[in-house]
Amino acid sequence: MADQEQPITNSVEEPLDLVRLSLDECIYVKMRGDRELKGRLHAYDQHLNMVLGDVEENITVVEFNEETNEEYIRKIQRAHDMLFVRGDGVILVSPPRRN
């Protein structure tokens, strides 16, 4: 009876519970393709499809200077108001720091 009335718990029993507790918080997401996202988590599902708000995206690219044959690393920064992220590109999700 009590279980039914209290369906939403704060216990962490499986990995995705940690994601659930990060709802409406700023999270860090590492993606394939050398991309990183920071944004507020509004929705997720079991595939780690997500909707993030006020997203800051960082893309790391390697560029070559043909003349000197040197490579250098460049960061591209982009912003998105509201972003749906497909789960198959997600490597890790990090909940906000709790001090």
């Binding site: 939403i8 659930r20 709802l23 409406d24 393709g33 507020r40 509004h42 929705a43 997720y44 599902d45 909707v51 708000g53 998105h80 108001d81 509201m82 972003l83 749906f84 992220v85 497909r86 590109g89």
Partner: peptide, 22 residues
């Protein structure tokens, strides 16, 4: 083959979405 879908903020009711997710 989709990586992202970028949306306008006012299309999304974030409170509703969070409830539905929970």
């Amino acid at each position: 083959v989709v990586r992202y879908v970028s949306l306008s903020k006012d299309l999304v009711d974030t409170a509703l979405l969070q409830d539905a997710t929970r």
